[in-house]
Design a protein around this nucleic acid. Structure first.
Lengths: 194, 194
DNA sequence: CCCTTTTACATACCGACGGTATGCGAGTAG
DNA sequence: CTACTCGCATACCGTCGGTATGTAAAAGGG
């Protein structure tokens, strides 16, 4: 194994193990000692790969999670032809993806608190909220949604989905996801009429 | 000053100063040393009043903040006669109240991450989400909203308002609050039609 | 093939933090 | 006046995130 491979291996191991621990226990409850022990390295390696220490490691994990969610959403949206159906499919898929406890703890609970809301929002924007905003803009241009500022609407819908996903984890019978998706659909359809 | 008065004075001072610091710097960035110095006491006093230490102190601060927001919302809603107008007024007031940076940092950012989402939701439920759910139930019973599960809808709306409030803090020109309230109204009116 | 440099870590250490055990003096009750 | 309680202060501890330094192996030039 040459040096580049070894480096990548260590980095990926740190990301994988820290992601598992952050998801299971929450950012604050996980110590660097536990992370490096799980990864089979030492703190020296961690700080060599992640300049900002614990925070930078968490940021990388968060980006990874957000990319995965965004990919799932994009895939679901691309499977539809009609722009309106793309929005519905994307939103429903986001809700389903964010129902994963790993995603919740890292992306929805610790993310904003650890990085601050501004940085969290910037990452969220880059990963998925931008696509939502673009979709809404297209629908407004096409006359399917009434003309209005896109940013507040994007945040309303994004926040609605985020907190509903968290709710799904607590009281989740299997019917709740369907109920939540139905309620979300009702909201979107209500906007369409107007 | 007798003992009961002294006790209450110390407790209120700790709550006031810790609230100020938590709001300004975030939970994790504030040390107990800083809190007790600002309050003019020592850690002994803090642990005498708040059995769970830093976490318990934060929980008390959070409850205080939530109560204040809930009171403002209830007052705005009670000022209206029509149930539908009560809902609109309550939601708009919540958005305006949660635009306060103190409220955001404590109630929306650190709250869920520090206490965990389940406990945060229980406190939120007791303070304000319960009223929202009751209002929605009444509107469904009155035939103003279409029959549907109330819980998912409550979480969708609550989450929409929470994240929009956070957005207001970042990019806030003074017109943004009005835009956000207008978008929220559009969503609610859309539900009404259906 | 050897020597130099760089790289990818490991080791050892530090200050600060949250938390606890104990001490103490002023109130309060009998 | 006394005994007891209560509201804190003091002193101390283990653990944490972070850093400075050491080191062995890989890479690169002659």
């Amino acid at each position: 194994m040459n040096r580049a491979e070894q480096r990548e291996h260590t980095r990926r191991t740190l990301l994988r193990e820290s992601r598992r621990l952050f998801a299971a226990q929450g950012y604050a409850a996980v110590g660097l000692a536990e992370i490096v022990r799980a990864a089979g390295v030492t703190k020296g390696a961690l700080y060599h790969h992640f300049d900002g220490g614990k925070t930078a490691l968490f940021r990388s994990v968060l980006e990874e999670v957000q990319q995965e969610v965004a990919q799932a959403v994009a895939r679901a949206a691309d499977a539809e032809d009609d722009p309106w159906e793309q929005l519905l499919a994307g939103c429903r898929t986001f809700l389903a993806s964010a129902a994963d406890p790993e995603v919740q703890q890292i992306m929805l609970l610790d993310g904003p608190a650890v990085l601050g809301w501004n940085e969290w929002r910037a990452l969220d924007e880059a990963a998925s909220a931008r696509h939502l905003a673009e979709a809404l803009t297209s629908l407004i241009d096409a006359g399917i949604l009434s003309p209005q500022p896109v940013e507040p609407l994007t945040r309303l819908l994004s926040g609605a989905m985020n907190e509903t996903a968290l709710w799904l984890a607590s009281s989740s019978g299997p019917a709740d996801l369907a109920d939540a998706q139905a309620a979300l659909t009702r909201i979107l359809e209500g906007l369409r009429a107007a």
